[in-house]
Structure formats: structure tokens, C-alpha cells
Design a protein around this nucleic acid. Structure first.
Length: 575
RNA sequence: UGAGGGUUGGUGCAGCGGUAGCACGACGGGCUCUGAACCCGUUAACCCAGGUUCGAAUCCUGGACCCUCAGCCA
């Protein structure tokens, strides 16, 4: 039951593109203007260019939705290109996880799967061309010297003594670099631009460096690897990208992007920068995320508290919810911090229509119905999803002994509490009206059981002939038939809105980000729920079957998000 | 103090010279066999100061504040 139905990728893209039609942003303005002026012959070609050195997170999802969404909307194509120019940090495991995550999000790059490393030969050729044009040189300064010579934000840099090497010498040196005749750090290839440029990026940036390590795709073929600035613009050019969309921290690099393409006189895409996503109460920098994983603060990249795509997936988020979220937060150039309430809203919105309802008691309180026959079990009809009648009905066992939520009973209820209390009558969802008569306590005074009576005339949860009304409906699970299992609840990983802003972001970790509940009582039909399936536990929230810790016959559940809870709000506001 | 980006309700995004709008949130009400969902309503914003104009969030000038850049990372 409740298997995770995913729309085929193409369909997902089309549907979302239609939804997006309403909202406008500055990138669309640019594209539409380009379409009008015929700047790129009416083409729209984008790319999502991850470096395979880590897992994708919700910030990448924003970029993925943007790039694939734009391509779909303007009948273009979006390429998936791995920016694998630094073999020190990259590996195939990441390549695979990235592909899985993009696919899971519902996007299809078709045949357009590329690797910057596939262009290494051509890139090498471009480098030689630059040298021949007198626009690049091999520098033999040490890394420290290069830094010294670069100058500072306020002072211009100085030219390297090797800057004026003749073309022939540069050519020979560069060939030797590629042939492995120099050690790492001994020399680099630099663009010859302007050491006094006000934009530091333009002070003779490094184009190639020596790295005597194997590359996960090209093996031992190379010992020199191109830098981002050199590889990226040329990869875009080779693939005939029209709009190369990246985040704001690359604004300064655009001047270099343009310089390289102009110097080589090749096809020239347009780089456009937008603000990266920041989400409240979490961190979205690869470096920090890696730290959480490596220091064992979380259980891995797919820990449900992680803002990684795999984390959200395991937590119980859906691709549609994440896509909708990305559409709604919009795209702009100013730094912002998005409220997680927005994300949670998108999940609820999606799951409300698609997730089967089910009853589960997280913190059980036993109830005995004194006037219900001992040993009797009857099956009552429950609706699978009131939002979607086509999802049908199911039978739920009811008997003399069952569990309700501890929170649903109060011995001395305050004014606005209208659930169960001594002497009070409530409805059991789809079952009967019951009235509480006695409270059984143990030696410590802890409530261990409620003694109630039921009204047979309210079978199915219907109002009795005398028209008696009840102010609350509770969920419940029959004791003997209940599935006994674990449920995990999650809260923000951090206690402050913007942990990245604090001195040490780990200082503000939330010690209560994970709560493991054992002995939860769920309706028996859940016994064979498939890993990854989504459910709404009525009155509680949306839960998913954990894909890692569940075993056949004993699914373990993760709470993805709570339902909106007016009662909790009343309590918090102090009645 | 160099260069480049940015500043619209609590949050995110529109508005591109003509009554400042959408979503989320918050608050109130309706409906309800989920205190959910749904429906209805309320709240609340143009960084500041000048200027241009019949009219400025939009154009101009000056200022304030925030962000990015000194990797052989991306």
C-alpha cells in the first residue's frame, strides 16, 4: 500500500513549467529579450554543472529546477555536466549519487551527459593557442610568490619575472608540464592579462596546474589539470550553451569568463548570476555539510536531518514538493534566508492529496472499554484519503482494548482542551463515542490506563439518535492487532536561524534534533508498507517508511513534517 | 580605504513613470468524524536625503548599510 508514485520525468518537467508560467524573474526577462533579438538564434541551452565532490543539497535543487525548468519552458535542452577538473577531491561515487538525485527530482538530461574531463584534449589545445597568441605564459614562481606578487585588494600586483618568456619557450615549458617533467607547484600556466587590474581575478589568473594524481575518468593520461575559470567557459562554449547560470560568488569571475572566450575567438555563451539558497536553521555549504558527516554529528549524507537531497528523500520529502518549493522561492540577486515553513508547506500540500491516511499512536495510553465484549474483534471501515475518494477504503480492527495518544487525555483539562478527560465523551475516528469513567494509576501516580464505556449506537463514529455532539475525534489503534514499531521524529539541526553566521556553527547544534520513539502502536495494515512509502498519520503528520532501518514485517517510520497544529499553538501562547 | 553585486510587509518573490501585488507566516472567523485540509477576512513594506516629472518603488545625484573577491578550490 501507499507506494510512491512518481510522475515520469518529462511529465514532471512539463507540469512544473506550466505552473511556473505565472512567476517572472530577471533571468526570464533576459532570455525573452534574447529570444526577441535573436541573440542565440532562438535557442535556449542551459546546463547544471556540479563538481562531483559531494552530495547534492536543496541549494543545488534550486539550480537544477531553474536550469531544467528554463530549458523545458523555452523548448531548449539542459545538460548535466560534471565539472571534474580537480581529481584530488572528486570520485565516481559522487557522480552516481548526483545522477540519482537529479533523476529523483524528476529531471531528464537525455543524451546530454557531459564531463569537463572529456574536453581535456581540446582544452589543452586551447591553452596552446592562447600561448601562441601571446596571451598565456608558464610561470615558475612558487605558490607563495604568486600570492605575494598578486598584490592586495587595495594595491596592484607586480608582474612575474617569467611573464615575458618568448612564445617558443612557453610552448616547450607547457609541453614539459604536460609530460610530467616538472613537480607539482614548480610551475603553472597563467593568462597574461593585467597585474594591476582592479578586479583581482584578472591579475594573470592560473589556467593550468600540475597534479600528479589519477583522475577518476582519464586515469593517468594527464598530470596537468585546468582550473575552473578556464575549463568552465570553454565547456560552455563547446556545448553551445546559451545561458550559463551560476551563483553570485562568480560575478567577479565573469570578466575572466568573457576574456578567455574573446581571446580564443570562440562561441560565447552569456553568464548570468543569481543568489544561492539559504534555508533557516540549517547550513548549505558543502564544506560544513561534509564536516557534519565526517565528525559523525549526523548519520551520513542521507541522515533525515540533513538538507541534502538524499536526506530529504529519506526524511519523506517528495520530488514534487521540492520542485514546488524551488518555484515559489523565486530567483533574484539578493542574499536571502528562506523560512523553512515554506518548504514544509510545499510538502504538506503535495502529500495532502497523495498520501493515504492511517492511524498510529506514538505515545500510547491504554484504554479499556468496560461494556465491550471481551475477545470480540470487529472491523470498521476507514477512508484512505478524504481528498481523493478513488483511493478507496480499508478495514481497521476494533476491540475492547486499544491505545490512544497520551496527549489526547488530560485529568484536569484547561478551558480550550476538548479531547478526553474524566467524565467527558469523545469520538474514536471511524469507531465509537466513548466516555471516560476511571483513571488507573501506578504507584508513582503515573496514568497507566483509562476505563471507558462506549455507545453501540455510534458505530462507525456516527452521531447517536439523540443528536449528542462531541468536541473531539481521536485516533486509536486496537491493542492486540497493533503493529509495534519505532518512529523517529526530527527537528531543526540547529537552534539558530543562520548558523553559518556564528563563530562556530557547531555551537548551535540542536541536541533535540532527533527523537526515537519505541513501542509505537500502528494500525496492522502498515506491517507490509514498502520502504519509501508516504502516509499521513491522522492528526499527527506525514511519515515515511525508512529505507535503511526497516526490515520485512517491521517498517520503521520517519516523520517528514507535522500537520499544522492549532492546539499546539494555543498551548504555546499560554492558553 | 580597490573592484563588483545588492537593499520592497515577519519571510521569499513580483511590480520596469500612472491606485504597491502574490505566496508563506501570524491573527480572526466559517466548515469539519483529522484542532488537518478547505473557505472567508485582517495585519503589515518601497534604506535615507535631495532632484527631474502633472505623477517616482521605478529615472538622476549624493549618502548609509549588507554581500563577494587577495586558492596552483569550484
Amino acid at each position: 500500500m501507499g507506494n510512491d508514485k512518481q510522475a515520469p520525468p518529462q511529465e514532471a518537467q512539463i507540469i512544473d513549467a506550466e505552473q511556473r508560467l505565472g512567476s517572472s524573474n530577471f533571468i526570464r526577462h533576459i532570455i525573452e529579450e534574447d529570444l526577441e533579438t535573436g541573440k542565440f538564434d532562438g535557442r535556449v541551452e542551459t546546463r547544471f554543472p556540479p563538481e562531483p565532490n559531494g552530495y547534492l543539497h536543496i541549494g543545488h535543487a534550486k539550480s537544477i529546477c531553474l536550469n531544467f525548468g528554463l530549458a523545458a519552458q523555452y523548448n531548449g535542452q539542459c545538460h548535466l555536466r560534471f565539472d571534474d577538473t580537480n581529481p584530488l577531491k572528486e570520485n565516481v561515487e559522487y557522480v552516481e549519487s548526483i545522477k540519482e538525485d537529479v533523476r529523483w527530482l524528476g529531471f531528464d538530461w537525455g543524451a546530454h551527459e557531459y564531463f569537463a574531463s572529456d574536453y581535456f584534449d581540446r582544452l589543452y589545445g586551447f591553452a596552446i593557442e592562447l600561448i601562441k597568441k601571446g596571451r598565456a605564459y608558464v610561470d615558475s614562481l612558487s605558490p607563495d610568490q604568486i600570492r605575494e606578487y598578486r598584490g592586495t585588494l587595495n594595491e596592484p600586483g607586480r608582474e612575474s619575472p617569467y611573464r615575458s618568456r618568448p612564445v617558443e619557450e612557453n610552448l616547450q615549458l607547457f609541453e614539459k608540464m604536460a609530460a610530467g617533467e616538472f613537480e607539482e607547484g614548480q610551475c603553472v600556466l597563467r593568462a597574461k592579462i593585467d597585474m594591476a587590474a582592479p578586479n583581482i581575478v584578472m591579475r594573470d589568473p592560473t589556467l593550468y596546474r600540475i597534479r600528479k594524481v589519477q583522475h577518476h575518468r582519464t586515469g593517468k593520461r594527464w598530470c596537468i589539470y585546468p582550473m575552473y575559470d578556464f575549463a568552465h567557459c570553454l565547456s560552455d562554449s563547446i556545448e553551445a550553451i546559451t545561458h550559463s547560470i551560476c551563483t553570485l560568488e562568480f560575478v567577479n569571475n565573469r570578466e575572466l569568463y568573457d576574456w578567455i572566450l574573446d581571446a580564443l575567438e570562440v562561441y560565447h555563451p552569456q553568464q548570468i548570476e543569481f543568489a544561492r539558497l539559504n534555508l533557516a536553521y540549517t547550513v548549505l555549504s558543502k564544506r560544513k555539510l561534509i564536516q557534519l558527516v565526517e565528525e559523525g554529528i549526523v548519520d551520513g549524507w542521507d541522515d533525515p536531518r540533513m538538507p541534502s537531497i538524499s536526506g530529504f528523500r529519506r526524511r519523506g520529502y517528495t520530488p514534487a514538493a521540492i520542485r514546488r518549493f524551488c518555484d515559489r522561492i523565486g530567483v533574484a540577486k539578493r542574499d536571502s534566508l528562506v523560512d523553512i515553513a515554506m518548504l514544509e508547506h510545499c510538502l504538506r500540500e503535495d502529500l495532502n492529496t497523495s498520501a493515504p491516511r492511517v492511524m498510529g499512536v506514538l505515545r500510547p495510553l491504554k484504554v479499556v472499554i468496560e461494556n465491550y465484549p471481551e475477545g470480540q474483534v470487529e472491523y470498521l471501515e476507514a477512508v484512505n484519503n478524504p481528498e481523493d475518494p478513488s483511493m478507496g477504503i480499508r478495514q481497521v480492527p476494533f476491540s475492547r482494548e486499544f491505545y490512544i495518544e497520551r496527549d489526547d487525555f488530560m485529568e484536569a483539562p484547561p478551558k480550550k482542551f476538548f479531547r478526553l478527560a474524566p467524565g467527558r465523551e469523545v469520538r474514536l475516528r471511524y469507531a465509537y463515542f466513548i466516555r471516560c469513567h476511571d483513571v488507573v494509576k501506578d504507584d508513582q501516580g503515573e496514568i497507566v490506563e483509562l476505563r471507558c464505556t462506549y455507545d453501540p449506537e455510534t458505530r462507525g463514529g456516527n452521531a447517536p439518535p439523540d443528536g449528542r455532539k462531541v468536541k473531539a475525534t481521536l485516533h486509536w489503534v486496537s491493542a492486540a492487532e497493533a503493529l509495534d514499531t519505532d518512529v523517529r521524529l526530527y527537528d531543526h539541526l540547529f537552534t539558530v536561524e543562520n548558523p553559518a553566521e556564528t563563530e562556530d556553527f557547531k555551537e548551535s547544534l540542536n541536541p533535540e534534533s532527533l527523537t526515537i520513539l519505541t513501542g509505537c502502536k500502528l494500525e496492522p495494515g502498515l506491517k507490509n508498507a514498502e520502504p519509501g512509502a508516504h502516509f499521513q498519520f491522522e492528526r499527527l503528520g506525514y511519515f515515511t517508511v525508512d529505507t535503511r532501518d526497516s526490515t520485512p514485517g517491521k517498517p520503521v517510520f520517519n516523520r517528514a513534517v507535522t500537520l499544522r497544529d492549532t492546539w499546539a499553538k494555543i498551548q504555546k501562547s499560554g492558553k
